[in-house]
Structure formats: C-alpha cells, structure tokens
Design a protein around this nucleic acid. Structure first.
Lengths: 199, 199
DNA sequence: CGTCTATTTGAATGTACTCAAAAGCGGTGG
DNA sequence: CCACCGCTTTTGAGTACATTCAAATAGACG
C-alpha cells in the first residue's frame, strides 16, 4: 500500500526526468506517506509549510480567508497534483494559505530538508523543479486570464474542464469559493444549465 | 549612455547573486540596449519571444486580445521590471501575449541563445532564474487573489500601491484594461475618490 | 430519527456594463 | 499661434449580472 503510493509519485516524476534504480531508491527514502481525513488540515495559515504534498487519492483545497472572514479557494489538488504554499515552503516563512482535505486524502510528501538535499545530490531534479515551477506559473496565468476577464458561466465551464468530475465529489459552495461567486448564484447557473436558458 | 543602462541591470542582478568582474564583463557582452517609441511593439502575439527585456526607463504593457477584440493587460513593466512572455521565451513557441510601449522606453535585453549560454557557463544564474520564476509566480498569485476576489475599488487601490505614480503617466483606459473594468466605470471610481462617497 | 449543514428559491439591492452624447485634450498643419 | 481633428474622458440613462438577506427544502451523518 505505502509502496504503491511511492510508485505513483516516481512514475509521475519519470515523465519529466529519468532516474536510475539507485536514485529512485534514495529518493523513495525521502518520501513519507500520510493520510488525512476529510476536514483535516494539511497546512494552517500562519504555520510554516514544511512539505510539498503529492496527492495520490482524494482532494485538497488551497485557500485563504479574507479580512471579512470569507474563504477564497485558489486551487484544488486532486490525484497527481501537488499541494503546497510555495512561497512559505521555499522561504520558510509563515504561510498565507491554508490547505484542507475535502475528502479522505492520501498524500506522499517530501520535507524541505530532503527537498534541498535532493537538488544538491541529483542535479536532474533542478530541471524537474524548474519545469514544475514553470508549469505552475502557466496554469496560474491561464486561471487568471480566464477568471479575471470572463463571466461566471464561462468560469464554471472552465472549472469543469480543468477538474473533470470534481463537481460531483465536493460541495458546490467550495466550487463557488473557487470561482469567486456566491453559492446562491452558482445554484442559479446550474439550474440554467440543466433546463436550458428558456426555463 | 548605453553603458549606463547595462550598469542598471547588473546592479539589479547583483541584489540576488554576486558576480566577479570577469563574469560581469562577459554577461555585459550578451546584453543589447534598445529604444522603443511610444506605441512601438516589443513583441507581437504569434511571434516567438526572443528576448527578456529589462526596462531602464519608460513603460511597457503586456496584454492579450480576446476573441471579442477587447485588450486585457496582465502587467505593466516600468523601471527595473522585466517584460517577457515567459512561456514563449522558454519553450520558443508562438507568444500568446503582445508587448507594447506606452511611453518612449529604453530596455536592456538578452536573447535566448545568450540566456542559455549564461546558465551553462555561470551556474549561479540558475539560482537567479529560479528566483525570478518564483518571484513571477508569487506576484501573479498576489494579483490573482486581489483581482479575482476583490471589488473594483480595492483593485484600483492595489494598482496604485503596486505602480506608484503610474496613473499619472499612462491613459486611464490602460489602467481600466489592467483592472478588468470599463474606462467609464474607472472614471466613476476616480470621481468618487476625489469627492468622497457623498458627492 | 433528529440535527446540522448545504442547496434552492425569491425579492430587493448593488455593482458594473452598454450605448450614446458631450466635453476635454493633444498633436498637427496652416 | 490658432484651428481643427482624432482620441480620451466624463456624464447620464437604461440594463444586466451578481449579491444580500431571509426562508423553505433537501441531504448527510451520527
């Protein structure tokens, strides 16, 4: 079971860089498998983000709470996604974001020390990290251009494409929080979808 | 004059990594100084982004045009900012964004070939690039959380903080495009600011 | 089964947009 | 230096999109 989870992450990394058996073995030794129950916190805002979390199964949300107490979700992490407050992790400063489980979730995680050692010992990982960063940047860019300039209905469509099937797994108030609209209004959008515009 | 501009960029990089005289000399040889008149294109969407542009003076906008023909500005680059379509530059694929001068603008730029050579010869630049990527990511994240979840008036306030004095230098329809609102509505916001809410 | 939370529905409100017209402003040529 | 042209900004009326608040309904979970 635990070994299976490690295999998932190695397979994922293998898509980007090639590792030999010994490298895989050492890398594996740096990984920890961890399970979170629904509603458990993986990271609390204000704490220092100690791990990069690779989701094997389940779903996490990365969000922050604004000064009026409203939660804003910036990203969901489902199977094969990474969940981390990158700024907090890289600079080891208090996290702005919180990370919480929306389902029972299994992750494979790597700590800051191991992560740094990895880059020193296996330079190939430099490439992996750079590409991961670049990828995160591009995803964020897409999300921004889509969500800043498009109407709610389009945003919802994009959400469905990006996270296929997720709308059936999590409460839709979480989706509303991600889209930056109220749950009430999302409810109306969904009704329009089912019934067509002329209902 | 040209030498002065090269000094500006080296000083800027010197804040992140330390270079010796010889490294500076070689690095300098890779730089080109270039001037753009107001309204000139630094990059056209569809072309491949060949340079990273460091703005010495003036102002550039990075934007895209949506399928209804409306321009959306994702970033302004003023003094000491970089302007580049990062995805296009790193992967050498056609650019999604365009870059255009809003004022007469002097830049120091480095081409892809020189940029790559730099990383091979001076590994310290790996660190610089990684940090630059990381910084871009964090800036984008801030912009996203601010603009996706905040009302127009707050967004305008954030713009003023991020680009102090810029509202006096560029047409405000450009600012509206950055904020994702109409010029008409920005006009109203500005009036409210001057007169107070009870006008 | 009961409690708690999530979702739906509706009315009233607010925020931002569209369209159109007037006013302001900057550059250019006479 | 002034007059004109084109572009930007302002202003206003009407409208659309999305929110707030409140209440009813539905679902999830112990």
């Amino acid at each position: 079971m635990l070994q299976q989870h490690r295999t998932a992450i190695i397979k994922n990394i293998g898509r980007v860089i090639e590792l030999d058996d010994e490298e895989i073995k050492w890398f594996s030794s740096l990984l920890e498998v961890r399970s979170f129950d629904k509603k458990d916190f993986v990271l609390q805002a204000g704490d220092i983000c100690q791990y990069q979390n690779y989701v094997v199964s389940g779903c996490l949300k990365i969000y922050y709470t604004d000064n009026t107490g409203i939660e804003h979700t910036v990203k969901f992490a489902i199977e094969d996604w990474w969940a981390v407050d990158l700024q907090s992790f890289t600079t080891q400063t208090p996290a702005f974001y919180s990370i919480q489980a929306l389902e029972n979730t299994d992750v494979v995680r790597i700590g800051k020390t191991g992560y740094d050692a990895l880059h020193e010992r296996i330079p190939k990982f430099e490439k992996f990290s750079r590409l991961m960063f670049q990828n995160s940047y591009i995803l964020l860019q897409n999300r921004m251009t889509q969500n800043l300039f498009e109407p709610a209905e389009e945003k919802y469509r994009h959400f469905s494409e990006k996270y296929p099937g997720l709308e059936l797994r999590i409460p839709q108030k979480e989706i509303a929080s991600y889209l930056g609209i109220t749950p009430e209004f999302l409810s109306i959008i969904r009704r329009r979808r089912k019934n067509g515009i002329f209902s």
